[in-house]
């Protein structure tokens, strides 16, 4: 099922076209990496998919089942966050805000969901630590937990979610998760169908980056959550992603990773970027 389909999409800032002729689709369970050099329009595309920026031409079609609240997002870190006094728990909990609507305060279910997801990502012991004092990898995990926080079904509403997403939810719960990557404990796709990540690997060392990839892979495999990731790390992208979208102000390539690595564009990019 194609969740998101882009047809001849182009984006521009102040009349200057940044990226054009985008034609691709993302289906349930896809793991798509968007690669390309700086300024090739990757982040702009993410903004477009989040409806923060409307395309200059063409159309981004969302499947009728994909509600706006069902796209998780892990943004690039901003300079202001580097010295922001926020507890890790506060940050994760704010992931539930989108589903609160006009209601001013978090419910107990929201708080339980935040605790649950923090335990899954093995960051519960950091809950009361200051976000700015965490290491880069820990910060990234906090942001990932925030993005997935809305997908944890609240206990009181779980019956409703079972109905809408029956078989997979049950399968996940019984599916073994002992000793596996923590995130694989079953981040159920309760409310979330797509996860967008904007260069989650920037500023991380290789070990931490690999952890992140492993977590994403587990989330993708076990819950069928479609992942769209913008990445600088072309080597990591071809190793992990099932599909590649290569941008250079227009669409150079879209398709399976195994087809991509044989293209001249891939060879060039792989050669240019250090391992």
């Amino acid at each position: 099922m194609a969740l998101i389909t882009c047809e001849n999409v182009s984006f521009s800032y102040d009349g200057n076209t940044v990226v054009s002729d985008l034609n691709f689709s993302v289906c349930t369970g896809d793991y798509l990496c968007v690669v390309g050099e700086n300024g090739s329009g990757k982040s702009t595309l993410i903004k477009g998919l989040l409806r923060l920026k409307s395309p200059q031409s063409g159309a981004i079609r969302m499947h009728a089942d994909l509600k706006p609240g069902e796209i998780g997002y892990l943004p690039q870190q901003t300079a202001a966050q580097k010295d922001f006094p926020a507890g890790a728990y506060e940050v994760v909990l704010s992931g539930r805000l989108g589903s609160r609507g006009i209601l001013p305060f978090y419910s107990r279910a929201d708080k339980e969901a935040a605790v649950e997801i923090m335990k899954r990502f093995d960051i519960y012991d950091l809950a009361h630590r200051c976000y700015r004092e965490l290491s880069g990898g820990q910060q990234q995990r906090v942001l990932l937990a925030r993005a997935l926080c809305s997908s944890v079904p609240s206990p009181h509403k779980s019956s409703r979610i079972h109905e809408s997403d029956g078989s997979r939810t049950d399968g996940d719960r019984t599916g073994g998760h002992a000793g596996d990557v923590h995130a694989s404990g079953g981040v159920r796709s309760g409310g979330l169908k797509v996860l967008l990540l904007d260069e989650p690997d920037s500023g991380l060392d290789p070990v931490v980056t690999n952890d992140l990839y492993r977590q994403l892979d587990a989330i993708n495999r076990e819950s069928g959550l479609a992942i769209i990731m913008v990445s600088h790390d072309i080597h990591g992208a071809v190793r992990n992603a099932g599909k590649i979208l290569h941008l250079k102000n227009k669409q150079i390539f879209f398709g399976e990773t195994r087809d991509y690595i044989n293209t001249p564009a891939a060879a060039k990019l792989l050669k240019e970027s250090p391992l």
Binding site: R51, A86, L97, G98
Partner: peptide, 20 residues
């Protein structure tokens, strides 16, 4: 609006993307 103020202060892009 305390929770919303926290969200838009900490990460405005994220807040906007999630419908705040």
């Amino acid at each position: 609006f305390y929770n919303k103020i926290f969200a838009v202060t900490f990460d405005e892009t994220y807040a906007r993307a999630t419908g705040v």
